Amino acid sequence: MTGGGFVGVAPASPIDPSRWKGFPRVLGPSFLHLPTLTIGLLGVQILWSVEMSYASPYLISLGLSTSQVALVFLAGPVSGLVVQPLVGALADTSTSRWGRRRPFILGGCVVCVAGMLLLGYTRGVAAWVFAPGGHAHGVLTVVLAVISIFVIDFSINAVQAVDRALLVDTLPPAQQAAGNACAALMLGLGSVVGFFVSVPLVFT
């Protein structure tokens, strides 16, 4: 797991590197440094692939038209436009004792898993409020499904932004290219694994 982190000592100027204490480092043997730094990208890519495969047919099964589904999936580009720079700026100025990046990565992962669980159990959650089969239950199911997609996309973009920044923080310039290559490898592996996970979901 990653260790260290940057803890600001002057809140008035938290992004001034001269005021940070500590140094970035990765615990464990050197051959595991790059996989450790990029493993978060593998996880979020798997979830994103599953969402992209499963969510469209699921939303259509709930009664949404294809044009409405397309509007829902604006969550992806909107989250990339808004969430990544916002979370990146917040992480840059963080003075957490756990490091600048780690709290955002862990928090984003927890939110992402919660969103995926909500997407998978929207009907059951809606049944806590309204009796199944009724119009109100159907409407709430759709609303929860749409909310879960936005939650997933926003949290995925948050984790991706901070994980990529972690590479820049931690690796020396000579290893930046290798770090980016490892990140691309994790994203590719995540897409492949996500495909095989989503196939049984779509056809069940």
Rank of each mutant, 00 (worst) to 15 (best):
T2M: 04
P11W: 09
P17T: 11
S18G: 11
W20H: 15
K21I: 06
P24K: 06
V26R: 04
L27T: 13
L27D: 11
H33D: 12
T36S: 14
G40Y: 01
L41F: 10
Q45R: 01
I46V: 13
V50Q: 00
V50K: 00
V50M: 01
E51S: 00
P57G: 01
L59E: 13
T66W: 07
S67L: 15
Q68T: 13
Q68W: 09
V69W: 02
V72M: 05
A75E: 06
G76W: 10
G80H: 05
G80R: 08
L81C: 00
V82D: 11
V82C: 07
V83W: 08
V83I: 15
V83N: 06
P85S: 09
V87H: 09
G88M: 09
A89Y: 09
A89I: 02
D92F: 09
S96Q: 05
R97N: 06
W98P: 04
G99M: 14
G99A: 12
R101H: 11
F104L: 08
I105W: 08
C109H: 10
V113M: 02
V113H: 01
L118V: 13
L119Y: 06
G120V: 04
Y121R: 03
R123S: 02
R123M: 01
G124Q: 14
V129F: 15
G133S: 12
G138D: 13
V139W: 04
A145C: 10
A158D: 05
V159Q: 13
Q160I: 00
A161D: 15
D163L: 02
P172W: 11
Q175G: 04
N180D: 11
A183K: 11
A184G: 08
M186P: 14
M186E: 14
G188Q: 14
V192E: 01
V192A: 05
V193M: 05
V197G: 03
L201N: 03
V202S: 05
F203K: 08
